[in-house]
Amino acid sequence: MSVLKVENLTKKFGKFTALDNVSLELQEGEVFGFIGPNGAGKTTTIRSILGILKATSGKITVFGKDSWKDAVEIHKRLAFVPGDVSLWPNLTGGEIIDLFIKLNGSNNKSKKEELIKLFDLDPSKKCRTYSKGNRQKVALIAALSVDADLYILDEPTSGLDPLMEKIFQECIRNLKSEGKTIFLSSHILSEVEQLCDRVCIIRKGKIIETGSLKELRHLMRNQITIETKSTVSDLENLKGLYGLTVRDNTYNFQADADKLISIINHFNSYGIVNLESMPPTLEDLFMHHYSNGEVNSNV
């Protein structure tokens, strides 16, 4: 069942088009990664989903309801962590967490205490004294204390130290095992890589790639290092081989996934001594889309 569905969402601020025909869909129980650099439109998309911004055109449904008209109804089953957590300096972290939980319509004290311990937050301090990481913890604890069906997290780990990042990932895995749906916006690719079932890449307000990590990787080239007994000839005629560098009898290159077998076969006739293959990371995928100025349609 689809929990969240964005169809042809376009959002304009005056003449500036922040989102251009964005479509995406989240199935129940999946962790969905939403990646893109700052200014790509991640936060605008999320604010539209939350009904804080009104779509110029297009349709967003959450739990089958309209995100703009039925915002309050939707928010009863939703928990959110904003990207830039700005809090009231005169309130303590504990007070804010309580208030947020209350505003969400739930009241789970034990969960709150547990998370405060887990994230090692001092809830008795005024927010003006909190660092960015601690403010992030306040928002995270408030959101995770709520028993929601959909969690929307906008760069939730920014400012957290590696230890806390681990704890956060643990929490997300637990939610996933409980069958919750999670929308995780991030530019930390390793995080998305570890947690997400499916990934969507946004760039300059347009979705340029959506799919499982496996599917996306398939579109990419593997990084291959081969060492052979004798010198390999006739490399120019091999298809799907790029960026070759040779040192002694060690060959370093990228290979298209679908041409991999024929390439290996060719090398094998010269006697392979050693072979290393590295699958493309999300980082590569990401860089691939961003380093070239234009979107490469056939990748």
């Binding site: 604010r47 939350l50 009904g51 804080i52 915002a71 309050v72 928010h75 009863k76 939703l78 959110f80 904003p82 830039d84 700005s86 809090l87 009231w88 947020f100 505003l103 969400n104 319509g105 928002a139 929307i152």
Partner: peptide, 14 residues
């Protein structure tokens, strides 16, 4: 302007 309404309106508050 300080981005703080987001906390309120993303919850069950119209």
């Amino acid at each position: 302007k300080r981005n703080r309404l987001e906390h309120i309106l993303s919850r069950v508050v119209s």
